[in-house]
Design a protein around this nucleic acid. Structure first.
Lengths: 206, 206
DNA sequence: GCGAATTTTTACCATTTGGTAAATCTACGA
DNA sequence: TCGTAGATTTACCAAATGGTAAAAATTCGC
């Protein structure tokens, strides 16, 4: 472990690590950290448990690896918020991107939600180093837009919270949403329309 | 279990069941269902593990009891949505009540969120019998308001989702919120202001 | 094809955890 | 105060679970 340059991974290592992480994402997001077992992950991956421990140092290593890899994808929509674009359209496009992610990557959303829900015991450092600076930067950008008068007065921090909350809700609370919505309706289309109206109303009020 | 009328619980039973449930709420909300152990709950409650199993049939029994008791409290703010009140003020008051609950009962919020996040394996029946009818009823009420022209066109289902999502976010994602917000600021006051503006904008747009 | 390195399996193990049986202690009404 | 129903503790247990050692199998550069 105190070795210098890590050997570049073989094709087998690349493939198996990917297979294991995909299985682990499925299992962790469905059962939570403690509810997930190495046996479940092993079965899901089609790889024996000791073999999984050949590729990862342990259960926690798999979990942390997943969360770290996820973080980049997760923050990407916010990174793309363009200082040079039209403020209202930029923010609405951000809402749409976040909603698309909730639709396309619900397991990732639930994995992240589960970690935060339990106090972010394994990802707090990353939140400080990755999320916090980006959050501050984009809050400053939105504040600038407000000060320039191109946006009405609003709280950038809580605006972003509202966007996160409303979009991720469809992935994180999917079980509830499915019970409450008519099964044939396309929840995401309706949600997209609703959220566009909701946030546009706030961003364009006179 | 096939007995007829259950004996009325003694004072000791009342007290100990309350103590156990309170400890279990703390432990379940912090660690999730699988992460919570009877030993943790026992320590937190100051009651030995076998003694806990004298009052409850098992771990799942405690969890289900907690969720069932919580459901009533949880739905209460929505029950109070008054068909005879002013639509905009009624909905904004509902938002405030939900936000107050997230502030005052964060453990309950996280317990519920954890259950839904994992597919509501132990509370799905209650969601159908308790939540669904109330949800449908209040959606119909809001639809009526829209049809009467006292509210602008909007999707009642997704409006309620947005209210749930934005308010519960402050309890469920508390760990993240604490990392991102300046520690001295009063998050709930700012959130209340923000959410009032957000939803009022949508409800009063011309 | 061959030897070394990598990968996989087999056979385990210690700990944790939900739960139980039975003995013991305590409260409480007669 | 005494007997009994109710409450609590002690001493367990079986299954699940994260993890390991070492043998066996496979892959790969030459």
């Amino acid at each position: 472990m105190t070795e210098g340059p890590t050997k570049k991974p073989s094709r087998i290592q690349m493939r198996n690590r990917r297979v294991i992480l995909d299985a682990a994402l499925e299992v962790f997001s469905r059962h939570g950290y403690r509810g997930a077992t190495l046996d479940l992950i092993a079965t899901e991956a089609g790889i024996s448990k000791p073999n999984i421990l050949y590729y990862f140092d342990g259960k926690e290593d798999i979990h942390v690896t997943l969360l770290s890899q996820l973080m980049e994808t997760w923050l990407d929509p916010l990174v793309e918020l363009d200082p040079n674009g039209d403020p209202v359209e930029e923010i609405l496009a951000y809402v749409q991107r976040k909603l698309d992610m909730a639709r396309d990557l619900p397991r990732e959303s639930r994995l992240f939600a589960g970690e935060i829900l339990q106090g972010a015991p394994r990802i707090t450092p990353e939140l400080h180093t990755s999320l916090r600076p980006l959050f501050d930067e984009k809050c400053a950008l939105i504040s600038r837009w407000v000060n320039e008068g191109v946006l009405p007065p609003l709280d950038p921090q809580h605006l972003i919270f509202s966007i996160w909350a409303t979009t991720q809700h469809y992935a994180d609370f999917q079980a509830q949403v499915h019970i409450l919505l008519a099964p044939n309706s396309d929840a995401y289309d309706a949600a997209a329309n609703h959220l566009r109206v909701l946030f546009r109303s706030m961003l364009t009020r006179s």
